[in-house]
């Protein structure tokens, strides 16, 4: 086994259990109690935040999802409507199904591509060389633009009929489309935008790569393992917690994507609802139609769906995410 040392972190061996001894167990118990106390001490800011700040808006929105709350009328007029909002969403709201379709298409294509791009560039820019920081910065630049209003103008200039993309295509003698205003293509331009802003997962990957202990590679080199082997047997397993993080968070954020779709469609989700992501539908219902109760129901349906995906991720994570702390 040439790669024993290198592959060890991939299959962490739990420390051998200490021999059962009376005194030892007693001490363990005491230390476990003090650890439990410490746990609550460290957790206290978050617990206070949860109870004082995070929980109330969430629970209120859950409650409102069973009401006709319309934002502007005073709270005395809030009426309990049972499951009406939920029923309406599934039976009487064609835009709901449209936005689900758009969001799924968007997420299933854009999220994996964005992750692949960010991992690829992170690997390329991992080695410390002169000027590598500047390169990282420049790849991060598009993300710095965030959801700025400038984006709306830029994306039109790139992807309408007179845009830069078509100018590029014309070099090859191809006459391009009015991509961003074509209901069949507008979503693709939104995906390109999302992938283009791959800076955040890239930085997380970079930070993760920095955490892989160098001695593992040194040992592997001594053992004569090829670069490819090192990648699959050291880098990937050691990076897996971070890959898991990026996969989960990009999925959550990707399906919650709002700002860029809102900005480049000027809030319309158009043309023909082709960029109407789920969150745009929520926004329309909440702030244009003043149906906040209904919007809250939409949001909780979203929570249930994405929660399910999250559970699936966590349970499959057991099989491929390797934690150096020896737990799963």
């Amino acid at each position: 086994m040439a790669l024993t040392t290198a592959s060890r972190p991939a299959l962490p061996v739990p420390a051998p259990a200490p021999p059962p001894a009376r005194g030892r167990r007693k001490k363990n118990y005491a230390s476990r109690r003090s650890e439990g106390l410490a746990g609550y001490v460290f957790l206290s800011p978050w617990l206070i935040g949860l109870m004082a700040i995070t929980a109330f808006p969430m629970l209120l929105s859950l409650y409102l999802s069973f009401t006709n709350y319309d934002v502007l009328s005073s709270w005395e007029f809030v009426e309990w409507v049972g499951f009406d909002n939920y029923k309406k969403i599934f039976t009487l709201d064609p835009t709901f199904w449209q936005s689900v379709r758009v969001t799924l298409t968007f997420g299933l294509i854009a999220i994996p591509l964005k992750l692949a791009a960010s991992l690829g560039v992170a690997l390329l820019l991992n080695k410390e060389r002169r000027g590598v920081g500047l390169f990282r910065g420049m790849f991060y630049l598009p993300s710095l633009l965030g959801g700025s209003v400038a984006l709306a103008l830029v994306w039109v200039a790139m992807f309408n009929r007179e845009g830069a993309f078509n100018a590029g295509l014309s070099l090859f003698g191809i006459e391009g489309n009015n991509w961003i205003n074509d209901p069949d293509w507008a979503l693709s331009t939104l995906m390109v935008l999302t992938i283009w802003q791959f800076g955040a997962p890239m930085v997380i990957f970079l930070a993760g790569l920095k955490q892989v202990p160098t001695e593992l590679y040194e040992a592997a080199q001594v053992d004569g393992a090829s670069k490819t082997r090192q990648f699959f047997h050291i880098t990937l397993p050691m990076l897996s917690p971070v890959i898991f993080f990026n996969l989960l968070l990009e999925t959550i954020n990707g399906f919650q994507g709002f700002t860029s779709a809102f900005v480049i469609s000027n809030g319309t989700g158009g043309p023909l609802g082709s960029t109407k992501l789920y969150t745009l539908h929520i926004y329309d219902k909440a702030f244009t139609d003043f149906q906040m109760g209904y919007a809250s129901a939409l949001a909780w349906i979203f929570l249930a769906a994405i929660g399910l995906i999250t559970i699936v991720f966590f349970s499959t994570g057991k099989f491929w995410v390797h934690y150096s702390d020896g737990e799963n």
Binding site: N160, T268, G270
Partner: peptide, 11 residues
């Protein structure tokens, strides 16, 4: 329609 859509928000 695609050209009209560019102006549809009234901005």
């Amino acid at each position: 329609a695609d050209v009209c859509h560019e102006a549809v928000t009234g901005s």
